[in-house]
Design a protein around this nucleic acid. Structure first.
Lengths: 224, 224
DNA sequence: GTGCTTCTGTAGCAAAAGCTACATTGGAGA
DNA sequence: TCTCCAATGTAGCTTTTGCTACAGAAGCAC
């Protein structure tokens, strides 16, 4: 679900802008802006959370790691969205339940816990923003769960390529990264990609996958 | 996670009681109480939602159905908790994204959308309740996702039996129902149960499973 | 260029899970 | 008691996914 859809296109940054706490003002009220030019893990499972995170540019990936060491992406946080898990932890004094990694060229703002809690108590728009962000996350997680239950890996891979490569028909990502997103291993991805290539729906390059036939790919993504 | 843990033991019914809208008062403000003595599907996927649901007694099961017809439980709603998905739908004018079924002897209160939205705008405790319910759900879903990624069916079965049969060491549930909860089929459950029986951790009866050795079961639930 | 690392392609086997089929058992109700 | 049906036990097969191993190819640093 696109975060701009529900709740009348409400976005975290717009809300903060309305409150005159964005940009310089926000820095004055205690927000720190952090820039990352490469993949970096900024939160580890079990870390205590020091504030609310807002993605300004780029993207954050929230993922889990199995005891065997395999990663699996739980969901992404896009520009203009807040990391609601961190809010969760702030409100309930919990430790962060997963890992968070930046994509290259990502800028993240951090608002101290106390500031956010004060804002939440006094500003209806912050309350709405919080509830909305939580709602979006719940829907994303439910969608993911449903997908895992009803689709096989092949279909999930096809769907992932379709959704994330739709911009220019090309998904710039290694097969190892793809495997980490879908919670499986590289060899399995390679095997499944071979099927997609044989069917003529995609083409594989070093470090990227090119969509050749979106309709065909969509049909493979729908198969149970 | 137990809903009474975080946020200082806040429970939906307590909140409503504080507001003097519980029981008779709640009925006056438009809440309808519905009683179900047997399994019954009360919401189908795609239904529009007419209000907020509060579980008074018993339990609700929220589940998805794959195109092939297999069910999989997403999570349960216990007494004193609200169905946050329904709230979601109310706030965002969405259709319900899953199925909901009552357990036997379940009582559910329904508060009309408009009433709840008014309460939300004016009552900080309702705001907190809403945020809290959402948070709990997010954590449950994340836990479930992580489990699916990191544990095999055998371990998930063992864990399910442990968690849901802990009251009197007996889980009153048919193998078909178990299969529906875990998103698999009866034969697979039978096969895995045979392993658990052989190991001496459980005993199977008609319509129920008796825990023989909780420690052993816990060890099998932890295995990757 | 040379050497090194990372990414990819491929094969083959093992384990997990799903599916079909059928026998057996226990319990509820006629 | 007898019948019927739901629940269970079991076998065998197929498909899917995971795991190990290795070879070739592309990019990078020197």
């Amino acid at each position: 679900m696109d975060s701009t859809e529900a709740m009348g296109g409400l976005k975290a940054l717009d809300v903060f802008r309305d409150l005159s706490v964005c940009g310089q003002q926000m820095l004055e009220c205690g927000m720190q802006l952090n820039y990352f030019d490469e993949l970096k893990t900024i939160i580890n499972k079990g870390n205590s959370v020091s504030g609310a995170y807002v993605v300004v540019r780029g993207r954050l990936r929230v993922y889990s790691i199995s005891p065997g060491g395999n990663e699996a992406t739980l969901y992404f946080i896009n520009p203009g969205e807040v990391c609601i898990l961190a809010l969760n932890c702030i409100f309930n004094n919990l430790q962060y339940p997963a890992w968070v990694q930046t994509e290259p060229d990502t800028c993240v703002g951090m608002i101290p816990s106390l500031t956010y809690r004060t804002l939440f108590q006094n500003e209806p728009s912050i309350q709405n923003l919080t509830v909305h962000a939580l709602s979006v996350l719940v829907f994303r997680l439910m969608e993911e769960l449903e997908e895992i239950h009803s689709l096989n890996l092949n279909a999930r891979l096809a769907k992932f390529i379709l959704l994330r490569g739709v911009a220019d028909g090309q998904l710039r990502m290694t097969q190892s990264e793809l495997a980490a997103h879908l919670g499986t291993t590289r060899e399995v991805i390679a095997k499944l990609l071979r099927k997609l290539v044989a069917a003529g729906s995609v083409k594989t390059l070093r470090g990227s996958i090119v969509i050749e036939n979106p309709e065909l790919l969509a049909r493979m993504a729908a198969r149970e």
